[in-house]
Amino acid sequence: MQLGTRWTSGDEPPKVVPEALARGIRAVDESIPDDALGQPRPRWTLTWLEARPIAELDTGVIVSLDADGEPVVRHDDGDEFA
């Protein structure tokens, strides 16, 4: 069993996050606008399912790796983003 971790969106992902997954996370982070009211940024949660990393943002955005090891971004409602 592998434990996960949490960090704030916009911060560098922890070193345990595979680089391909980190690329997808950074792309999502870059698309989140700054909050003019100073609200805290959402947080990522890293979990492992069958030894594969999955990062989920508090907003419901999920970044995982496909069979080729490339990042896939989707929302927890099942929609994939281009």
Rank of each mutant, 00 (worst) to 15 (best):
Ala27Lys: 06
Val72Ile: 14
Ala67Val: 05
Val28Ala: 01
Ile54Phe: 09
Val63Lys: 03
Trp48Val: 03
Leu49Met: 12
Thr59Glu: 04
Asp34Cys: 15
Arg23Phe: 14
Asp29Arg: 01
Ser31Tyr: 03
Trp48Lys: 11
Ala55Val: 02
Leu46Val: 13
Ile32Ala: 01
Asp58Leu: 09
Glu30Asp: 09
Asp66Arg: 12
Pro71Arg: 03
Thr59Asp: 06
Glu70Ala: 06
Val61Glu: 00
Asp58Ser: 10
Leu49Arg: 15
Leu21Ile: 11
Asp68Ile: 11
Trp48Ala: 10
Asp66Asn: 13
Asp35Met: 14
Trp44Lys: 03
Glu30Leu: 08
Trp44Ile: 02
Pro42Thr: 07
Gly69Arg: 03
Ala27Asn: 10
Thr45Tyr: 09
Val72Asn: 05
Pro42Leu: 12
Ile25Phe: 01
Pro71Glu: 05
Asp34Pro: 14
Pro40Thr: 10
Thr59Phe: 04
Thr47Asp: 12
Arg43Ile: 03
Asp34Leu: 15
Ala55Leu: 15
Thr59Cys: 05
Glu50Pro: 03
Trp44Cys: 07
Asp35Ala: 14
Val61Arg: 00
Ile32Lys: 00
Arg23Cys: 12
Ala55His: 11
Ala55Phe: 15
Leu65Trp: 04
Gly38Ala: 14
Ser64Trp: 06
Arg43Pro: 00
Glu70Thr: 06
Val63His: 00
Glu30Tyr: 06
Gly60Asn: 05
Glu30Asn: 15
Arg26Asp: 05
Pro33Ala: 10
Glu50Met: 12
Pro42His: 15
Ile54Ser: 12
Gln39Ser: 15
Ile54Gly: 04
Trp48Asn: 04
Thr45Cys: 10
Ile25Ala: 03
Arg41Lys: 13
Pro40Gln: 08
Arg52Tyr: 13
Ile54Lys: 13
Asp68Cys: 09
Ala22Leu: 04
Arg23Tyr: 11
Gly60Ser: 06
Val72Gln: 12
Gly24Met: 01
Leu57Arg: 02
Val72Trp: 01
Ser64Cys: 11
Ile54Asn: 08
Val28His: 00
Trp48Pro: 07
Gly69Cys: 05
Ile32Cys: 02
Ser31His: 06
Asp34Tyr: 12
Ile54Arg: 10
Ile54Gln: 07
Ser64Arg: 09
Pro40Val: 04
Ala27Thr: 06
Gln39Lys: 14
Pro40Trp: 05
Thr59Ala: 12
Ala22Lys: 04
Arg41Asp: 08
Glu30Pro: 03
Asp34Trp: 15
Val63Asn: 02
Ser31Pro: 02
Gly38Thr: 09
